[in-house]
């Protein structure tokens, strides 16, 4: 398997405050990789740095080309969909408009309406609320909308920032089932940032553990999941 994303020595800072101290990691094609770590470890920052939403340095290779100096919009155009922290809903627009926006970089004819139908089949609850203001959706529905919006890009790589955040356990399960489905059926590679380590390790193939901006540990998700000492000292479950 070749790497969809290859990251070497990634550094990023907010103003004078350095948050990432040289991360190295890979995402194999069609696989799910998860970044785990405590609050403030730099997980969200990593995703933002990959997408050029903050100033960063280092090597970022996506499908063999460097994206380290590209703007967010251009990276998105290459098929990288970011489901951001807080879900990034366009609250004043309707659910359907939110989905249409996901396909903004595709050309107009390109089967967009068909894709919207497919997303609605995936998330029947969104279909019921298609013409509703997206701000009126519940947290779980907004998360589904965010994932749906990302899928509208027909992405090759999805960056997911805490999809379980603020959701009821049942809804979390539902969301993760959907992610597993996407990975099975659409062959999308994923980089998943999660606080809920057990769920993330369940889904992921590969895991990296971040501690204050550096990678403390990495390995196949299954190994980390089964390693008592790692679980106790890093993941706390």
């Amino acid at each position: 398997m070749s790497a969809t994303l290859k990251v070497r020595n990634l550094e990023a800072s907010y103003g004078a405050f350095k948050v990432l101290h040289g991360l190295d990691f890979d995402i194999a094609e069609g696989s799910v990789t998860t970044l785990l770590g405590a609050n403030g470890a730099g997980k969200t920052t990593t995703l933002r740095a990959l997408c050029g939403m903050i100033r960063r340095s280092g090597t970022i290779e996506y499908e063999g080309r460097s994206i380290a100096n590209m703007k967010t919009e251009d990276i998105v155009r290459l098929g990288v969909a970011h489901v951001p922290e807080g879900r990034g809903t366009f609250t004043s627009l309707t659910v359907e408009e939110n989905l249409r926006l996901g396909a903004m970089t595709r050309s107009a004819g390109d089967g967009i309406s068909g894709d919207i139908d497919r997303i609605f089949a995936f998330f029947p609850r969104l279909k019921e609320r298609a013409s509703q203001q997206a701000g009126t959706l519940s947290g779980g529905e907004q998360q589904m909308l965010a994932i749906g919006r990302a899928l509208m890009l027909r992405p090759k790589l999805m960056l997911l920032d805490e999809p379980s955040f603020g959701l009821a356990p049942l809804i979390v399960k539902e969301v993760f089932a959907i992610l597993a489905d996407i990975r099975e059926n659409m062959g999308v590679s994923m980089l998943l940032v999660e606080q809920n380590a057990s769920l993330a390790l369940e889904l992921a193939d590969q895991a990296y553990l971040i501690e204050t901006g550096s990678i403390a540990l990495s390995g196949p998700a299954a190994e980390i999941r089964d390693d008592e000492s790692v679980r106790a000292s890093y993941l706390g479950y």
Binding site: C51, E73, V76, F90, L93, L101, M104
Partner: peptide
């Protein structure tokens, strides 16, 4: 129109708009 939608999105939430590839 798509451009109209993109303009509304860029005004409503610039950060998210960039994440769907809109040149804000």
């Amino acid at each position: 129109t798509r451009v109209g939608l993109a303009m509304r999105a860029a005004a409503a939430n610039p950060e998210s708009a960039k994440l769907v590839g809109i040149r804000v």
